[in-house]
Structures are given as structure tokens and as C-alpha cells.
């Protein structure tokens, strides 16, 4: 079972909640990965894809990890395999794709935890430093800054959070209130 399919809710009241980090990958790249995997019939060796894309293997693995935690692909025995949800996503127009990806993003433990963290605060918002501190507390083995960037990027994409660079404040998006 992957993160997005886990039924366990995040617990904002626990001292250090169990959350898993976000892969620092752009969601456009995840969608591109699905397209290329579809060109390969829905299954391909990961090393062959890396060779075809002339991409850094390390970066490709991060993108695959992102697709995996969103329940779009699985990776049995070094292969990349399209899951039904991944196939469904690539056949949809832009905004329908976005809806499904957003639904999956909303299930991730870090997103749920940070959403709860923001909701519990006055004005449903926190400064960048407060968010970085919370990320450092909940993910002590991760570098907070890349997690912050990923949180802002995925939060904006899924329209759960907004971030104002002018104010340096992360907020619950109006649509998500």
C-alpha cells in the first residue's frame, strides 16, 4: 500500500507525527513520465528509460518515487509499471488530470499534517520560518528547505495552499477552506 492509498489520517496532536517526506519533483515531470511510459506500452525497465531520457538516474528515481506515492505507477523488480489510475490520468484533459493528482496529493501524510498545522493556527496561515521549523520538527532527517519548496509547489498545484512571496506566508487556500 502506498501513501496516497493509506487510510490512516495524520495526527496533528502527536508530539512528532509520522509523516513521510515529499519527493522534490515537479508534478509536470510526473505527468511526462506517465506519457513516456504509455509510449512503452505501460511497462519498461527503469534503466532503459533513464538511458532514453538521457536524464540523471538520481533525478529520474525521485520522479518515479513521486509517481509511486501518488499511486500512478509501481516498481516491481526494477521495472516501471503503469497503474490504472496513471493510465486514467494521461487520457484526461489538463484540468481533469489536475483534479485527480490533487486528490492524490491531498492524501499524502505531509500534506495532511501541514494542512492540519495551518488550520489550527490563527488566520490559517504561518510564516515561512514557522513552516520550516515545523518541517524540521516532523522530518528531522530531511533538509527543511527542499521540503518547503516541494510543499509550496504541490500545495499550490493541488490548490490546498497558497504562498505569498511578498508576505512570506503560507496559507490554506480559499478553495480548500
Amino acid at each position: 500500500m502506498t501513501e496516497a492509498s493509506s487510510p490512516e489520517p495524520a495526527d496533528p496532536s502527536s508530539a512528532v507525527p509520522f509523516v513521510t517526506p515529499l519527493p522534490p519533483a515537479g508534478l509536470s515531470k510526473v505527468l511526462g513520465l506517465l506519457e513516456i511510459l504509455d509510449d512503452h506500452g505501460g511497462r519498461e525497465d527503469i534503466y532503459k528509460l533513464a538511458r532514453e531520457l538521457r536524464d540523471s538516474f538520481g533525478e529520474l528515481i525521485i520522479i518515479i518515487k513521486a509517481a509511486e506515492i501518488l499511486d500512478l505507477v509501481e516498481t516491481p523488480g526494477g521495472d516501471l509499471v503503469m497503474l490504472p489510475l496513471g493510465k486514467q490520468v494521461i487520457e484526461l484533459p489538463v484540468n481533469e488530470k489536475k483534479k485527480i493528482i490533487s486528490r492524490q496529493v491531498a492524501k499524502l501524510s505531509l500534506i495532511r499534517h501541514m494542512t492540519d498545522f495551518l488550520r489550527a493556527r490563527e488566520g490559517q496561515q504561518a510564516t515561512r520560518q514557522e513552516v520550516l521549523d515545523e518541517l524540521a520538527r516532523t522530518l528531522p532527517t530531511e533538509r527543511p528547505k527542499p521540503q518547503f519548496e516541494a510543499l509550496v509547489n504541490w500545495g499550490r498545484y493541488s490548490e490546498l495552499m497558497t504562498f505569498s512571496r511578498d508576505e512570506d506566508v503560507l496559507r490554506i487556500a480559499q478553495k480548500a477552506v
Binding site: G26, S28, K29, V94, G155, R156, E159, F163
Partner: peptide, 21 residues
Amino acid sequence: IDKVGLDGFESAYPRELSGGM
């Protein structure tokens, strides 16, 4: 902005965006 899937990024500056965005 909605048509191209950028809903949610209205207040972002270009430096905050990937090349694709």
C-alpha cells in the same frame, strides 16, 4: 490560467516556477 493548469499559482513569481510552469 485555469486552462493551462496553473490555478493555484496566480500569486507566484516566475523565479518560483519550474521551466514547464
